[in-house]
Design a protein around this nucleic acid. Structure first.
Lengths: 205, 205
DNA sequence: GTCTATATTTTGATAGAC
DNA sequence: GTCTATCAAAATATAGAC
């Protein structure tokens, strides 16, 4: 049975996702929790703090999930595949929270903003390390590591925007599409060769 | 010399981009225009209408720019390359407007929301047609056309989020990175072959 | 076209009873 | 831990003078 603080958090996640942080009022959160708005302030000191709490927990769990999935692996290409799948899965499983963490940074106080950006940098650096090692090993084609990491993460975030949990596509199928797309985009290979014509052995994207 | 309506629109674009639509007040727009807030209502009937106007014009110009760039071309691969470059360039040149068009849909009335979604669908369908024809021609690997188009567009939108006009990268260099990434991701080719080892002839990504 | 003045609502947050 | 009551500030929008 969830505590009232958990209920408030869940309701806030839902409303921040659906209407946005600034368009959501404390009164509305309270109404959906079945309590008066003053009671919210017993559990959270301010509206901003609810937002910060959601973002902080989400970033912590996102990073922990990635680290757990990468644990013990050394093959560069496998690492990138695992990282992409990990990222996509988390974003599809936790659609609302990750959407908030990606788009509601402007609602934070300057201090909290810096803290979330720090956590995000930490997460991005894991991807950048894999890309850098892949380029050094000659597995990935050389290009700006930061731009590539942003490209990959933005691409995969996209899934969380249009994904419908009850839609026709299971999470793993989507994760696989993104994994293949990213690996094809990254890996060394002759572009011109593929342009020659259809490949009878082509693996499905 | 810009009319006051143009000034209001420009100021609104800047504020909606920096602080978000709901976090921006009519008074603030007026202050930055050097007029009183009541005067805004001579030019626009409501705050929502300013947002709608920005979004509508942006979507119209984005689509017109793409159509102009594609005009007369028939080669599938070239079309996709041109489409990606067109999309990226427009999003980098018009960072603020496209950011608003992508993230402030929730501020619109239901009627205006439907209208913008309709324009967006129209734009996406141009990309989907190219992908579909590419798959039919055997140039692109078969996969879900809608998911691919969302992936490509989200990927390229990413540029508008982190791009700094005075940064180290010129617009065309970024557009080229995205074009290559997308074409590599789409095109038919044997993934396993590339995994064999570094390719001495590898084109820079 | 821009002004002053104002109507009406709603907001985030606090005080203090229970 | 939740309530009622309330504060002060800010919001969108309108009326009517100039």
């Amino acid at each position: 049975m969830p505590s009232m603080k958990d209920t408030i958090t869940t309701v806030a996640v839902d409303l921040f996702h659906r209407k946005g942080y600034f368009a959501t009022s404390i009164s509305e959160i309270a109404r959906q929790c079945g309590i008066q708005k003053a009671s919210i302030y017993y559990h959270y000191p301010s509206k901003e703090n609810i937002l910060f709490h959601i973002q902080q927990v989400t970033m912590e769990e996102l990073t922990a999930y990635l680290r757990a999935n990468l644990d013990g692996r050394t093959d560069i290409e496998e690492c990138m595949g695992v990282a992409v799948r990990s990222h996509v899965r988390f974003h599809l499983d936790r659609q609302k929270e990750t959407f908030i963490a990606n788009s509601e940074l402007r609602g934070l106080t300057p201090e909290h903003y810096l803290e979330i950006v720090r956590q995000r940098d930490e997460y991005e650096q894991i991807f950048q390390r894999i890309i850098r090692e892949g380029i050094a090993a000659g597995v990935f084609t050389a290009a700006d590591v930061k731009i590539l990491s942003y490209a990959i993460l933005t691409l995969c975030n996209g899934g969380a925007i249009w994904f419908k949990p009850r839609g026709r596509m299971p999470v793993d199928a989507i994760a696989e599409i993104y994994e293949n797309f990213v690996l094809r985009g990254l890996k060394v290979g002759d572009l011109a060769a593929a342009a020659a014509g259809p490949d009878p052995q082509a693996a499905p994207l």
